[in-house]
Design a binder for these strands. Structure first.
Length: 926
DNA sequence: ATGGGTCCT
DNA sequence: AGGACCC
């Protein structure tokens, strides 16, 4: 099929080739065709390099409109339908058939399609939205945590199909599926028809022409693009189907041969549909775009400049003399946007990496005292540090951005920022867990930056603040010993690794973990990793708001988000208040969650990878294994699981001066560190199996698991496409409402610009999270959730029959009068350190529900929340002997765990471990 | 506008 | 550090 095209081989790597369009006359054969076949580094430097390449290739095309790439690529643009609203509906499916708006300040930033039927639109003011739809349910969407989680989950899901996924905002992704299309065509795994819509210019002439030419229309371009794009539409349909089945997300897709066209054409049929554009239709399709402003890449500034030149419509831009245009704009930009106006876009799909900045931002009507600024700074820092812990990297720069209101011209001035390096000794507090100290010191830095921006002796009026952590670098592999290492100030200033340079990713490149993702062993279809990591407690000051996250990472270092995200979904009272402004925003639930302390993220990743490896290696020989989460176990049991010894031996290994309650809330690796430290202190080192694998080499070689990520299945009701082929699905996620009493946020005197939900003040009361991909297998017949007089908790019922694998706990919690029977299964494929135990016995445990708890309400809680409460209640009489009865059946569990072996954690120098232990000991004394 | 992000100059 | 762009 590609006999008309030249083929290029990338010897280094995948060796998939791209046929060149015969008429595109590529004169420079050294051009990397979008770099899509090369070993892709996905760090900052690489992204920059690729952009550079693109610019160069654009330059070479310069004023002629010949594309370097022709129609050689197959690009899919995936655009999630009303993304925030879908996330909220995932969290609370009761909202699905209600008009739903997601509110930030006074804006409805997006809304579901039910609401759109009432005339509500994106970015509509709350008042107007409520006028149009009095029943509109509003959910606060200012905290982006959940959106970010789902967003990354989706992007990573898409990376199962191809590593060439580029994120655009939270809800859009480009996929370069050229190689997949080629594969399918070569293997004959194709159909002849385009799935979904095919863009056609509705015009009688064209229809007549088409009739006359008959099938020849398809032969107009002989480069093979029709076959590729047709297959592309089939790939897109598969992907959308899977997204719906696996993540319960609907989206639109556009399929074409470049990013511009795939993105633009995706919007032709919304929602939940897909459209394919073939090259012959490009000119007519572009003409339908209309105004230049609608071209991605031409923003408001440029379109104003263009308008000043009389350029408003695409045709104006197409016809404008390029040399004149170069006079008025940046010459390169002039060329690029004129190409865009013809539908020409050679920009590559640049594989996404981890975020390059982690920032938090809030706008308000007024913030005019230093005290308020400080309070905001503190709030930001608490939230950001949590995200840093989840991320695992260390920032080297702190940036403060503000927006002032200058009363003079009454104009919202643009933002101003100041940034400075963060001294290494301060950031070392991040790894050593001295988070209070860290927060305090960063606060001082931020306040210093603030004084550089604002003369605090004069009155000031801020309308926005933003704090960003930048220059994120990986910590050294041994996080424990790195507690005491001070980074070189020059770290991260590294420039100029050419793409493909093998040194990239080793030292100072921020995101090495994806670099290996596309090595020559990479399979095009990568099974999804499913390791989940528990969050863990941390020690933020009490006035911090808890914006807890439940992000974990795949072995590749990717974010993996539990399906239910561990958050109680919720809706509040949605009745309209006469005063629309003061109307209560339906709150996203702020669960009373534990703070999280994540030491050595990277180390944990390595350990998880080891476990994963074991899991894969032994999957077929071992059946299901059973294990309680650490939060449900006694310290002794944990100790014996870590040391590989019997509980009776391990009992003494827990340092006496460590608070058991705190200990129980720690993540397993920290627990293990403490135990091992104690062990080594006593000179009782127990050697376990040697496990040399660590770091990213191992992590990134993961490409073969037997199971896909487990998520709920929902009956599909696609309006088009292949809905009829879909298998029935069994799982419905019912999540219901929550009323939680909220307390005012600690915002000082800052006036919010609109109604806003209030976060719960931080409480360090909940246990470590369970992996929250948990689903309740079965459920009590308590029927509809009752709204009791007391604050009502979330109701959630999930049925899933899909087998889960990996380190995922499946919980069954059944309400039995006053007791709850918890069945905790771990369907781990078979780790050597996990016991083969009798699941029927060891996994059943009866808990007491405290009398003050509404059992019906409790029985309707999501399983992970239930478990957290159960674990918490079981610890309440914490150190008393009676409390042991509330813990899981020790005998059974200890039988289970004592047989197990954890992978060897390399023994660290004692210096590092001591600091951890001392940290918790000092906490204990407080 | 919101609360983020990206890259380029 | 700011400005452009994206959502």
């Amino acid at each position: 099929m590609d006999e008309h095209g030249m083929e290029f081989e990338d010897n280094e790597d995948e060796s998939w080739s791209l046929p060149f369009n015969g008429d595109s006359s590529p004169s420079n054969t050294s051009i990397d065709i979008g770099c899509q076949g090369s070993a892709c580094m996905t760090d900052t430097q690489d992204r920059r390099n690729r952009k550079q390449q693109h610019r160069l290739s654009s330059n070479s095309a310069d004023s002629c409109m010949i594309s370097t790439l022709g129609h050689t690529r197959t690009i899919i643009h995936i655009d999630i339908d009303c993304f925030y609203a879908q996330v909220e509906m995932m969290r609370n499916p009761k909202l699905r058939d209600k008009p739903l708006g997601v509110q930030q300040k006074y804006l409805v930033v997006t809304c579901n399609y039910v609401a759109r039927e009432y005339g509500v639109t994106k970015l509509m003011g709350v008042k107007e939205a409520l006028d149009r739809c009095p029943n509109l349910v509003l959910v606060s969407g200012e905290d982006l945590t959940h959106y970010r989680q789902v967003s990354y989950k989706i992007s990573e899901f898409l990376q199962q199909y191809t590593p060439h996924v580029e994120r655009l905002g939270m809800d859009e992704n480009f996929l370069d599926v050229s190689h997949l299309a080629k594969q399918r065509l070569e293997s004959g795994d194709t159909r002849s028809d385009v799935i979904g819509h095919e863009y056609k210019f509705e015009n009688e002439d064209s229809i007549v022409r088409e009739d006359k030419c008959g099938k020849d229309r398809l032969a107009t371009c002989t480069c093979g693009c029709h076959e590729r794009l047709t297959v592309g539409s089939q790939i897109a349909a598969d992907i959308r189907d899977a997204l719906h089945q696996e993540i319960n997300i609907t989206c639109c897709a556009g399929i074409s041969y470049n990013k511009l066209l795939s993105k633009l054409v995706a919007g032709k049929h919304k929602p939940n549909q897909q459209t394919t554009l073939f090259p012959e239709q490009t000119a007519q399709f572009m003409a339908t775009v209309g105004q230049v402003r609608r071209i991605p890449g031409i923003g408001s500034t440029t379109s104003k400049k263009l308008a000043a030149l009389g350029i408003v419509l695409l045709q104006d831009l197409q016809q404008f003399d390029i040399s004149d245009l170069k006079q008025e704009l940046e010459p390169k930009q002039a060329v690029v946007i004129q190409q865009l106006s013809f539908g020409v876009d050679d920009s590559p799909v640049v594989t996404f990496g981890r975020p390059q900045t982690i920032s938090d931002e809030d706008s308000f009507k007024k913030c005019s005292t230093v005290k308020d600024v400080r309070s905001k700074v503190k709030e930001f820092l608490c939230s950001l540090i949590k995200r840093l812990l989840d991320d695992g990297r260390t920032p080297q720069t702190l940036r403060l951005t503000i927006r002032k209101l200058t009363t003079a011209d009454k104009k919202w001035t643009s933002r101003e920022s100041r940034q400075c390096p963060i001294p290494g000794h301060i950031m070392s507090c991040l790894s050593s867990g001295k988070l209070e100290r860290l927060t305090d010191q960063l606060e001082e830095i931020a306040m210093t930056l603030f004084t550089k921006l604002v003369d605090t002796k004069e009155p000031f009026h801020l309308t926005l603040m933003n704090i960003a952590f930048c220059s994120l670098v990986e910590k050294s592999k041994n996080a424990i010993s790195s507690f005491f290492t001070v980074r070189s100030p020059r770290h991260g200033v590294d420039h100029g690794h050419p793409p493909g340079d093998s040194h990239v990713g080793q030292k100072s490149v921020p995101t090495p973990d994806r670099g290996k993702q596309q090595n020559s062993l990479q399979k095009w279809v990568i099974k999804s990793p499913e390791k989940l990591i528990n969050n863990s407690p941390e020690d933020f000051p009490d006035n911090c708001e808890a914006r807890s996250t439940n992000v974990s990472r795949s072995p590749q270092g990717c974010l993996v988000v539990p399906g239910h995200s561990g958050m109680s979904p919720g809706i509040g009272d949605a009745r309209k208040n006469d005063n629309g402004e003061s109307r209560k925003i339906v709150e996203s639930v702020k669960k009373d969650s534990s703070e999280l302390k994540t030491l050595s993220c990277q180390k944990r990743k390595a350990e998880e990878a080891i476990e994963d490896k074991h899991s894969r290696n032994k999957k077929t020989s071992l059946g299901r294994n059973i294990r309680w989460s650490s939060s449900a176990r006694s310290p002794e049991e944990i100790a014996c699981s870590y040391t590989g010894r019997k509980c009776s031996e391990a009992r003494l290994s827990i340092p006496k001066d460590v608070d058991m309650e705190i200990f129980l809330q720690l993540p397993r690796d920290i627990q293990r560190e403490i135990l091992q430290e104690e062990e080594s202190r006593k000179g009782q080192m127990y050697s376990t199996q040697t496990e040399k694998s660590s770091g990213y080499e191992e992590l990134n070689s993961v490409n073969d698991t037997d199971n896909n990520c487990s998520t709920s299945h929902v009956r599909s009701d696609y309006p088009e496409g292949r809905g009829g082929q879909r298998k029935d699905s069994r799982t419905i996620l019912h999540t219901a409402s929550v009323k939680e009493s909220s307390s005012p946020s600690d915002c000082g005197g800052i006036e919010p610009t609109g109604d806003r939900s209030e976060d719960f003040p931080f409480k360090q009361s909940m246990s470590t999270r369970l992996p929250s991909d948990n689903k309740l297998h079965t459920h009590t017949g308590s029927g509809q959730p009752s709204m009791s007089e007391r604050p009502t908790k979330t109701v959630s019922v999930v049925n899933t029959t899909k087998k889960q694998s990996g380190d995922i706990l499946n919980l069954k919690l059944n309400s039995v009068d006053d007791n709850v029977t918890g069945v905790c299964e771990e369907t781990r494929g078979g780790d050597s350190h996990i016991d083969d135990c009798d699941s029927n016995h060891s996994a059943n445990q009866t808990y007491q529900i405290p009398p003050h708890v509404d059992k019906e309400v409790f029985s309707n809680l999501p399983s992970d929340i239930q478990m957290e409460y159960l674990c918490q209640w079981s610890r309440v009489p914490k150190m008393s002997p009676e409390s042991q009865g509330a813990l899981p059946d020790k005998k059974q569990i200890s039988t289970a765990v004592s047989q197990g072996r954890l992978p060897n954690t390399k023994h660290k120098p004692n210096a590092g471990k001591t600091s951890i232990l001392q940290f918790f000991q000092s906490k204990n004394k407080k």
